[in-house]
Nucleic acid binder design. Structure first.
Lengths: 146, 146
DNA sequence: TTGCTTGCAAAGGATTTGCAACATG
DNA sequence: CATGTTGCAAATCCTTTGCAAGCAA
């Protein structure tokens, strides 16, 4: 977390941006979160510490965090953008339960390699990808089963 | 296309829905399209034949087509839902050019198999997935190169 | 006739933006 | 002080919905 703060601080000064209490507050909340969350969820959290903060500030800050390389956008296709840590948190894909929404981060280097090959077979230069595996998690399978 | 019309007709009667000129018109336009398109794009097309048609009708019809199994939603994550044919058009994923938006349908059974295994290794029962490979298409690579 | 359909406009939900007041470097 | 920054509300964008009038069966 120390390192992340440092990165963000440098990002601010390098871009002539200012360090404000609101940004500090949101950065704190962001660093404490472990899982994916939406702007709305983060807003609800920081609002507890500073009820006067505006949602727009949270949305703007998430953009900054992404640009600074600390956050990454994740789109589960439900109309709400979510964010996750990207610093020291290498690329991975998501396994999502259709029933309860639980998510698991997954990574398979063989799949990654095959993706690159598929792209190349069409003459494409692969820059990135998104892969979402949807299904039923162990708990929900049990409940559905009977 | 004969078959698709038949399927849609059956879908309508089975659900006590009605055959209207608007639905026919939209179905025609849909069947003629080869690639992905948004509701807006389809609306622009049918409007030429019937300027009085409403967008809502197009949106509603696309829902029906999806329910009838003729269309499938595709989400490239740019905020606009697109549709493609699903009848006689088996599952596949998409390779999308970040530069010009060109898309190529791809399918790799080895990847599909590995996805299932990854899900199972976490106790999930895989129901479906989404995979988007982003990169630069041959044309855009050439232009970017120099 | 019954009740599904339509077009319209208003509503929705998530995110962005204009702006005047305000704070940071 | 020059500029970023903030909170607010209004504006966007895509999609959905309520509704009265219009049609298919």
């Amino acid at each position: 977390m120390r390192k992340e703060r440092e990165i963000f601080g440098k990002y601010l000064s390098r871009h002539n941006l200012r360090d404000t209490p609101q940004r500090e507050l949101i950065l704190d909340a962001f660093l404490k979160r472990e899982k994916h969350f939406s702007a709305e969820e983060l807003y609800d959290i920081v609002k507890k510490s500073d009820p006067s903060i505006g949602q727009a500030t949270v949305y703007r800050m998430l953009k900054l965090l992404a640009e600074a390389g600390l956050a990454r956008e994740v789109d589960f296709g439900d109309g709400v953008m979510r964010y996750e840590h990207s610093y020291n948190h290498p690329h991975h894909d998501h396994l999502v339960c259709r029933e309860c929404g639980k998510t698991v981060e997954v990574m398979d280097s063989v799949i990654e390699e095959l993706q690159k090959r598929v792209a190349e077979s069409f003459g494409f230069e692969l820059t990135d990808h998104e892969m979402y595996l949807y299904g039923l998690c162990p708990d929900c399978r049990r409940k559905t089963q009977k």
